[in-house]
Structure formats: structure tokens, C-alpha cells
């Protein structure tokens, strides 16, 4: 299980600066991705999960985005310090991405085969003919029938599911070490989603790349991931083995998130809810960012920001509840009342 680390992200911070102030979209993210492993990053809209994924390849438009701090180490080499030219050799080659919207993520006026082939020519130095053949081969590999014909077509002639397969073919053409998938199945119907997830798992077995899987769907996490990081307000609040998180979530936010899911295999009268709303990224509270909505909140939670602490062997959680300080704080509150 202890495969070698391919990608390590340390204290990544990306902020957005506008006339409204500074939005701390990504605010100190740490994780490691091992070879052949899938790391899920899950959270609700605005939590910074997509921005985290874009920050890795420095794809955040600047301005308004601003890289503030951190390291992104691919096999020990820091992408943050690289020149644009060096980085371009990594994009689409060692690290590639697929995006949420298959309808808009492909160039509407270029045949899909060419959109795959151009990366092959660029990164692998293939000739036009070789690149085209390989491109057709990739289209076959992702399970699209009559790939020779499809390669010559433009995106509008393909269904949403097929376009997402093309995106996968494009991302995997150069056998990357890391694939970042940003909500790749969110826009698709469930039966098509099932096809796409199956293809991704299958190709991961063949190619052995590590996958960072960004999603809001906890079901997809359970289906796809080995590790999972739960994001809230720009930070990871819980990092676990995926198989543990659903049975025994640690962070109150994770607990609330799982409780608010309607279950497919049992009847519930009422769903558990998380009170309140997410704080504004322009103005995060001083203490724990979840304290305001948290049923376990005490004085210390409101006053001091918790750090991501190790819990047991395989878990990390950003919560005071698992510390002695919290016990003291609770005791004090009980005494007062």
C-alpha cells in the first residue's frame, strides 16, 4: 500500500483580490498523492476545491487570482518555482486535467482527434500521422465505437458522455503520473456517470496514475477514492481513508454532511441538517471556521483557529473536540452555568 509519493502539496494558499477585499479561496491545503491512488477532495460549492485543483497547475487567472504561499512538489520538484516554459512541459504530460463541463471544455471548431493529437505531438514528439493514429487508439480505449470516424468529428456531433470520454482520452494520451479530475461526472446522467467512472478506474489500473478527484458527491467518493479530504471554507477539515469516513466521521462538518444525505436504501422521516450558512471567504472568523454552525462549539473554538491534527494512525482532523484544550474549555463552560 505504501506506494511512492508522486505529488505533494504543502500549505497551498491562493487568494482572490478584488474591490470587495481578499477572498481566501484556498487557504493552507496539505496533502500527498501516491502512485496509483485516488484522493478525493469533497466539499460544497465555494469551499475552494476547484480552486485547489486549478492552483496545482497554476491555471488560476491572475489577476484576480494570486498565489500566496505553498509548494506543489511533483516527484520532489516544486511546480511553483518553475518557469512557464518548464511548467508547460508538465501540463498535459505528467499532470493532466479533466473538467466538469464536457459541453464547453472542448474546442468547438477543432476535430476531437486533433485536440488529442496536438498534445501527443507536443509532448511526445510524434509525427502528424503517428499522433493521429495514437489519438484514434485513445478514443478506442475510452470505449467510443468507430473511433476513426469520431476522431474527425467536432464536439457538437458527440453526446455529453462521449465528450467526457474524449476529455479522458486527451488527458491520458501522454500517460500522465497525475490526473486531476474536477467534477468530471457532475454534468452527466447517472447511467453515463457509471460508465465514465468505470472507464476511469479501468484506465487507472492500466496506466497507474494517481488521481485527484474533486467532487461534491459523497457517493462518488465512496465509489472511487482511497483517501478523502473534506474541504470547508478553503481548508481541509478532515483527511481519512475513504472506507472509514462514512462509518465514523470525525469532524462535525463531515458528520453533518453525511447526515444530510438522503439514503437510497433506507427510509428516513427527516434529514439531518447543518444550521446556518458558510462564512464569507472575504471575512473568515478568527477561530474555527465552522464554529458558528457547530453543535459542539465551545469558547476555544470561537477564539482560536484549530490546526489539522493527527488522530490515530490514518486520520487527520481540524477540530478542537479531539484535544485536551477542548475538554478544559467545555469543563469551564459547564462550571459557569
Amino acid at each position: 500500500m505504501m506506494n511512492e509519493i508522486v505529488l505533494e502539496v504543502k500549505n497551498l494558499k491562493t487568494h482572490f483580490i478584488s474591490n470587495k477585499g481578499t477572498a481566501k479561496a484556498v487557504d493552507g491545503i496539505d496533502f500527498v498523492l501516491r502512485k496509483g491512488e485516488t484522493l478525493g477532495i469533497v466539499g460544497e460549492s465555494g469551499c475552494g476545491k476547484s480552486m485547489t485543483s486549478l492552483s496545482i497547475l497554476r491555471l488560476i487567472p491572475s489577476p484576480p487570482g494570486k498565489f500566496v504561499d505553498g509548494e506543489v512538489l511533483l516527484n520532489g520538484k516544486d511546480l511553483v518555482k518553475m518557469s512557464n516554459e518548464e511548467l508547460r512541459k508538465i501540463r498535459g504530460n505528467q499532470i493532466s486535467m479533466i473538467f466538469q463541463e464536457p459541453m464547453t471544455s472542448l474546442n468547438p471548431v477543432i476535430p476531437v482527434g486533433e485536440q488529442i493529437a496536438e498534445a501527443l505531438r507536443l509532448h511526445q514528439g510524434l509525427s502528424r500521422k503517428q499522433a493521429w493514429d495514437k489519438s484514434v487508439e485513445m478514443i478506442r480505449l475510452v470505449g467510443i465505437p468507430s473511433p476513426e470516424k469520431r476522431a474527425k468529428q467536432e464536439p457538437f456531433q458527440l453526446s455529453g458522455g462521449m465528450r467526457q470520454r474524449i476529455m479522458i482520452a486527451m488527458a491520458l494520451a501522454c500517460t500522465p503520473e497525475v490526473l486531476i479530475a474536477d467534477e468530471p461526472t457532475t454534468a452527466l446522467d447517472v447511467t453515463i456517470q457509471a460508465q465514465i467512472l468505470e472507464i476511469m478506474k479501468d484506465l487507472q489500473r492500466k496506466i497507474g496514475m494517481g488521481i485527484i478527484f474533486i467532487t461534491h458527491d459523497l457517493g462518488v467518493v465512496a465509489e472511487m477514492c482511497d483517501q478523502v479530504g473534506v474541504m470547508y471554507a478553503g481548508q481541509i477539515v478532515e483527511h481519512r481513508d475513504a472506507k472509514d469516513i462514512f462509518n465514523n466521521p470525525l469532524h462535525p462538518y463531515t458528520q453533518g454532511l453525511i447526515g444530510s444525505l438522503p439514503k437510497l436504501y433506507e427510509d428516513q422521516e427527516e434529514l439531518q441538517i447543518i444550521e446556518g450558512t458558510v462564512p464569507s471567504p472575504y471575512d473568515y472568523p478568527e477561530g474555527c471556521r465552522f464554529a458558528e454552525r457547530c453543535p459542539f462549539s465551545t469558547d476555544i473554538c470561537v477564539q482560536k483557529e484549530p490546526s489539522l491534527i493527527q488522530y490515530g494512525d490514518n486520520a487527520k482532523v481540524r477540530c478542537w473536540k479531539y484535544t485536551n484544550e477542548w475538554q478544559d474549555s467545555l469543563a469551564k463552560e459547564v462550571l459557569k452555568s
Partner: peptide, 25 residues
């Protein structure tokens, strides 16, 4: 059946065998 089996669920033990439909609608 296929629709139900295609839904990703958090409790993997409860899901029956997945039926993956071929092709598009």
C-alpha cells in the same frame, strides 16, 4: 434496475451488482 445500481452510494456494502448500460440514450 440499471438506474438504481448506477447511483454511487456511500454504503458500498448495500449496493447490489452494478449494471452498466452500454451507449447513450
Amino acid at each position: 434496475k440499471a438506474l438504481l445500481s448506477a447511483i454511487p452510494v456511500t454504503d458500498q456494502t448495500k449496493r447490489g451488482e452494478r449494471i452498466i448500460l452500454k451507449g447513450d440514450v
